Simulated scan of single mutants.
Amino acid sequence: MEMAKKSVNVSEANNISKEHEIYLNKVKKTKRKILITRILILVIFIALWQIAANLKWIDPFLTSSPTRVIESFVSLYEGGGLIKHIAVTCYETILGFSLGTILGSLIAVILWWSPFVSKILDPYLVVLNALPKVALAPIIIFWIGNGIPAIIVIALLISVITTIISVLTGFNEIDKEKIMLMNTFRATKIQILRYLIFPYSVPILISALKINVGLSWVGVIMGEFLVAKNGLGFLIVYGGQVAQLDMVMMSIVILSAIAFIMYEVVAIVENKLVKDRS
């Protein structure tokens, strides 16, 4: 009987492992299909863009074309200025993104810590979030001056309010009964924050990071439109002024690629945090 039971358990384990293996293979196949489909869409889009430009379905001067974008890239790269422009924009974006996320999260913690202060500042946060930040850009430039610091501050202002609101909302959505349970065990606010609020708010924090990737790029490019002498935003403005739309399209393509890379880095961080939690 014992031998029979052992053989049944072994067969059940084998069935489970086979089913799990089949499931993992399906997941891998689905991921491959998604990746291949994404690449095909991009390739088809680029091919149609080039064909339309070659056959004059669209005006290459106004819309450029993949070959002209590549030629503009090579020309600027050989001139030695392209890497500097990319580096300046990346530096401004990463710094604005980091400061906005860190400062916004810290302010959200302070507001969660003091509900009284949070209720007082709530309408001001709503107004600041609704206010178009581009309206503040001339004032910031006047206060700080032309240059990288003003651009970073603009990027910071665009992302920090959104971070405060989203992170604070996540903190306040934690189950009140769990907080009451920890209070019954006389947990301090620091312990509640460390062992309950932060772990349960990881998805909210990741969501804020993803939002801030886009907002930081918006702030930096907007600032470079106004005051920069270097950067991809400067190239877009300069290219439009001198009617070099190939340079404009090239800068937009580079911006899209770098923004995608930043988003993927955040996604990798998200996957690592999810694995650590599980």
Results as ranks from 00 to 15, higher is better:
Val27Met: 09
Pro66Arg: 07
Ile36Thr: 11
Thr63Asn: 11
Phe185Pro: 07
Val127Thr: 10
Ser114Ile: 13
Lys84Tyr: 11
Ile204Thr: 15
Asn271Leu: 11
Ile83Asp: 03
Phe171Thr: 01
Val153Phe: 09
Asp175Phe: 12
Ala47Cys: 11
Val220Thr: 08
Asn172His: 10
Tyr238Asp: 05
Asn172Trp: 08
Leu95Arg: 07
Lys275Gln: 09
Leu205Asn: 01
Lys275Ala: 12
Leu193Thr: 04
Ile236Met: 09
Ser105Arg: 05
Leu245Trp: 02
Thr184His: 11
Ser65Cys: 03
Glu173Leu: 12
Ile192Leu: 02
Ile190His: 06
Lys31Gln: 11
Gly240Asp: 06
Thr67Ser: 15
Thr63Met: 11
Leu157Tyr: 05
Asn25Ser: 12
Glu21Cys: 06
Tyr23Pro: 01
Ile197Cys: 06
Asn183Phe: 12
Ile70Asp: 13
Ile36Asn: 03
Ile144Ala: 07
Glu2His: 08
Gly214Leu: 01
Ile174His: 05
Trp113Cys: 04
Ile22Pro: 00
Ser278Leu: 15
Ile151Asp: 00
Gly100Trp: 01
Val265Thr: 14
Asn14Ile: 13
Asp276Ala: 15
Met222Phe: 12
Thr37Ser: 15
Lys33Asp: 08
Thr162Ile: 10
Lys229Trp: 09
Gln50Tyr: 04
Ile83Ser: 06
Ala87Val: 03
Asn15Gly: 11
Asp246Tyr: 01
Ala130Cys: 07
Ile206Met: 05
Ile144Lys: 05
Leu48Ala: 11
Val202Lys: 06
Ala87Phe: 10
Met1Pro: 03
Val202Trp: 08
Ser98His: 00
Leu128Trp: 05
Leu232Ile: 13
Glu92Gly: 10
Gly79Met: 01
Leu273Ile: 04
Ile34Pro: 00
Tyr195Arg: 10
Ile164Pro: 00
Asn230Arg: 13
Trp113Gly: 02
Val117Glu: 01
Ser7His: 15
Ala135Gly: 13
Asn54Arg: 12
Pro203His: 07
Arg277Ile: 14
Val88Met: 09
Lys272Gly: 04
Gly145Gln: 04
Ile22Val: 15
Ile83Val: 10
Phe73Thr: 05
Trp112Leu: 07
Lys178Gln: 12
Gln50Ile: 06
Pro66Gly: 11
Thr169Ala: 15
Lys28Val: 00
Thr163Leu: 07
Gly233Pro: 03
Glu270Pro: 01
Leu48Ile: 13
Tyr238Pro: 04
Cys90Val: 14
Lys178Ala: 12
